[in-house]
Design a protein around this nucleic acid. Structure first.
Length: 304
DNA sequence: CGTTTTTGACCTGCGC
DNA sequence: GCGCAGGTCAAAAACG
């Protein structure tokens, strides 16, 4: 897989609006001294702008290369994971399953970058207790036991919120149904447990808890992969809801999306472009350079 | 009245 | 085997 083939991460901003030909020559003939001075000032600012734009260009190039490297590393890891998964596939129908058997640990690399302690799941599946078996019979539409691969997908999202807000809700566009709350030992604030109610059979779970270190941060831990269309398909760009206040550390989830169909790829590309554009427009240096470039082009056009 | 949230009870795995 | 802690269930309450 080659991520660059589908993820066109080059911004192609055309940040050099003065290709080759620059207004040096036009200052030459029969100009008054006043005009010459003005043109010299223009010249200087133009060359400054050119330098700035070159710098931005090279930065863009560097970032593109970095992203490509990250993609390559991801695919190497993903490939490794698939290999290992195919090797240990017969485990699905094992009669007993230890709760703490985390596939990520088995693979030798933690996927959740969060807190050192690997968040794991799986207690909800394979209840072999007689009571649970009975319940499952009574409730045929109960969530099917999903494969361990889906369960392995753990990602952590940090959301900055008001400390006075005790709702423990993280707006990510999906629809969640709370099924439990618990006070844990290592954190005085309660942990809320959510299941995705967007689709009845969706195996994704979410845990939300206020960070013990920084109470203004909500830590949302996602487990599993949605088996339905994302919220974007219905209500616009949900990533923008999470927006600038969150830091998504999910490499696995993002990687999973790389295997999506063309439409979803296009949507994702649009989202990426929007995110890049918004981050660039927040950069005052960039906007200043852009404004200067545009005004330079406009002046050039008005002269002709 | 259907859906969602709350919350105490229960289940399971782990360490001692 | 026992106790602890995390995770889940499900009845009751709250909500729209």
């Amino acid at each position: 897989m080659d991520c660059s083939s589908f993820l066109d991460i080059s911004l192609d901003l055309n940040t050099n609006p003065f290709p080759e030909k620059l207004p040096k020559k036009e200052v030459s003939v029969s100009a008054s001294t006043d005009l010459e001075r003005k043109c010299l000032v223009k010249d200087e600012s133009a060359s400054e702008l050119r330098e700035e734009l070159n710098r931005v260009n090279s930065e863009n190039k560097k970032l593109t290369e970095m992203l490509a490297t990250v993609c390559e590393n991801y695919y190497a890891l993903h490939h490794h994971l698939e290999k290992l998964q195919s090797r240990k596939s017969p485990e699905i129908d094992l009669p007993t399953k230890k709760r703490k058997q985390d596939p990520d640990e088995f693979l030798g690399f933690p996927i959740g970058i969060s807190s050192g302690k690997t968040e794991n799941s799986s207690s909800s599946e394979n209840h072999h207790h007689p009571q649970h078996q009975q319940k499952n019979q009574l409730l045929p539409c109960k969530r099917p036991a999903t494969d361990s691969f889906n369960k392995a997908k753990v990602s952590t999202v940090y959301v900055a919120t008001d400390t006075s807000d005790t709702s423990l809700t993280v707006k990510d566009g999906y629809q969640w149904r709370k099924y439990g709350q618990k006070v844990t030992r290592d954190n005085p604030s309660p942990r809320a447990y959510f299941r995705c109610s967007f689709a009845p059979s969706c195996p994704v779970k979410k845990k939300v808890q206020r960070s013990a270190e920084d109470p203004s941060l909500l830590v949302a831990t996602y487990e599993g992969t949605h088996n339905h269309l994302g919220p974007n398909a219905f209500e616009g760009d949900a990533t923008s809801q999470v927006g600038s206040s969150t830091v998504n550390l999910d490499l696995v989830h993002g990687g999973h999306r790389l295997a999506l169909d063309k439409n979803e790829r296009n949507t994702m590309q649009e989202v990426l472009v929007q995110q890049m554009a918004s981050s660039l427009t927040k950069d005052s240096k960039f906007t200043a350079a852009l404004a200067a470039a545009i005004s330079g082009r406009l002046m050039e056009q008005s002269r002709t």
